[in-house]
Simulated scan of single mutants.
Amino acid sequence: MGRVAYVNGRFLPHGQAAVHIEDRGYQFADAVYEVWALTDGKLADAEGHFVRLKRSLDELRIPEPMSRRALTVVLKEAVRRNRIRDGIVYLQISRGVAPRDHVFPKDQVLPAVVVTVKAMDPAAGHAKAAKGVKVITQPENRWGRCDIKTIGLLPNALARQAAAEAGAYEAWYVDDMGLVTEGAATNAWIIDRDGVLRTRGTNANILRGVTRGTLLELMEAEGLKVEQRPFTPQEALEAREAFITGASTLVTPVIAVDGKPVGDGKPGPVAMRLRSLYIERAKALAV
């Protein structure tokens, strides 16, 4: 059985699914998206993603296309039809279809909804975490509202391409003060020389990562010292450990920045324990 996509009320073969050429997501990136990790056929860490989705829609003044209950039914039906147990569920909601004009449509249009499901091998993710990943740094060049999860991801794509060409997995953005903001597709963390877990605060308009938020709760429960305070690439190199977090990466250790090793150049014990704790928690919060 081939992949199945949901587009505006219809489930279609993936290869035949399409959106209108005047969909505002296609023409203006006037759309938001959300990604759930799929574990054992369930939406992992589900609540945080629904909350962030609503916030993104509200910030762009895009009406919710359906109730959360109805949306949950659509997402689960997409999972069922694709017969996938582990992977990711991608949801995109645009303002809808309207004649091309920069201003919002004068007449009310229905938001456009797309859902796809992709399989991922959990063993491959665990192997990557056990080995650790490399990151490079890139100048921060994105718009100032990265707290909204929009589909305007060209700078992110260029940064990830630069990372791939450098033999790295991720790119960390560095602002004009020399401080790491976040990764192109992940949140960035270090455990500094004093053993303090550090990640940038969301008041800097970084993405409010769902994995990040759940992990902060776990760290508090574990009695770990955490500071939402930015760090420099040099501080990352001098740190005991570094790692990235995201829906598809979970918690993945970083072993090098710009070709130089972090700590002893191996995945650290704290990051690996946090990965295990997060996986347990995400499964408990799955629907």
Rank of each mutant, 00 (worst) to 15 (best):
G2N: 14
G2W: 12
R3V: 00
V4E: 00
V4N: 06
Y6W: 06
Y6P: 02
N8W: 08
G9D: 11
G9A: 05
G9R: 00
H14M: 11
Y26S: 11
D30V: 12
A37I: 07
L43V: 07
A46G: 06
G48M: 02
H49I: 03
R55W: 03
S56K: 01
S56T: 09
P63R: 14
S67M: 04
R68A: 14
R68Y: 15
T72D: 09
V73I: 07
V74D: 09
N82R: 14
D86F: 01
L91Y: 14
G96V: 08
P99E: 14
P99V: 10
V103Y: 07
V109G: 03
A112D: 15
V114E: 07
D121C: 01
D121P: 01
P122C: 01
A123L: 13
A124P: 06
V135K: 15
R142S: 03
W143K: 14
D147N: 11
T150G: 12
L153A: 01
A157T: 14
L158A: 10
R160Q: 06
R160G: 07
E165H: 12
A166N: 13
A168T: 01
E170Y: 15
A171R: 05
W172E: 12
D175P: 14
V180G: 07
A184H: 08
D192A: 05
R200T: 12
N203G: 09
I206N: 06
V210D: 15
G213L: 04
G213N: 04
E220F: 13
P230K: 11
T232R: 10
E235D: 02
A236C: 05
A239E: 10
E241H: 01
E241R: 08
A242G: 08
G246N: 10
V254I: 09
V257L: 02
V257M: 09
D258T: 02
D264R: 06
R273F: 04
L274P: 02
Y278K: 14
A284L: 15
L285Q: 15
L285P: 13
